[in-house]
Amino acid sequence: MSAATVARPAPFAVNWWARLGYLLAVVYCVYAVSILDISWDRLLAGLDNGARFLGAMFPPEFKRWKLLIDNLLESMQIALISSLFGVLISLPVGLCASRNLMPDWLTWPARAFIAVCRSFHPVIFAILFVKAVGFGPLAGILTLIFASIGFVAKLFAEAIEEISLKPVEAARAAGAPFLSVLTFAVLPQVLNRFIGFSTYQVDSNLRNSTMIGIVGAGGIGGTLAAAFQRFDYSFVCAILLAIIALIMVSEYVAVRVKGVFQ
C-alpha cells in the first residue's frame, strides 16, 4: 500500500510569485504613504471634520430651486449641443482613422488628433477654452466636443476596423464610387454600435457638464463651486442630489434608447 504513494503536485500549489507581488504592493503602500505625508492624526481629524460637514449638509436646502433648475438646464444644453457636434465630427475623424479603409498618410494624423483629445482630462481643455473664449457655456461646449471626439472617434475607428470586408469588396467590384461603398457596405455594419457609443457619450457629457463649471465653463458646476466657497453646505447637498437624480434619469433614458435600436 505504501508503495502506491505517487508524488503528485499539490492541487492548490502556492504561487510564490503572487505572494511576492502582494508583499511588494504592501511595501510600496507604506513607502508611498510616508512620502505623501498622510498621517493617522490627520485622518482622524478629517473624520471628525467630515462628521461636522455631513451635519452641515443635512437637511438639503431647496429654497433657491430656480437657480438650481436654471443651471441644470444649462448643463443639459451644454451636454446636448456638444454631443451633437462631437458625434458629427467623430464620424469623418473616426473614418479617417480606420486603417483597413484609409491609407497610412491619413490614418496617422487622425489617430494623433484622437490621442491628443483623449489624453487630456476635460478639465484641462475647459481651462484652456475658458482662457480662449471667456467664461460661459461656449467654453464648456467646446471642451466637451473635444472630449467626445476622443472617445467616439476612437471606438468608431475600432468598430470600422472590425467589419467584414466582403460587402466592401462586392460594392467595389460592382463599380460603386467611394461614397456608395461607405453608405451601403460600411455604415450598415457599424451603425448600431455607433448609436451605442453616441448614447453613452451623451450620458458621459452630461456627467462632465456638471463638473466643468468648477473652472468657469458654464453649467451647474460653477454654482456648486461658489456654494462650496461660501460654506453653504446645505445648498451643496441640494445640488449634489439634483446632479445624481439627473444622471440616474439619463442612465435610464440611455438604456431605453439602446433598447429601441437593438
Partner: peptide, 15 residues
C-alpha cells in the same frame, strides 16, 4: 454619479 472633481472638493473640505 459624483464626478471626481466634485469628490475632490468634498474631501478637500473634509481633510
Amino acid at each position: 454619479s459624483v464626478n471626481t472633481l466634485v469628490w475632490a472638493l468634498l474631501f478637500v473640505a473634509v481633510f
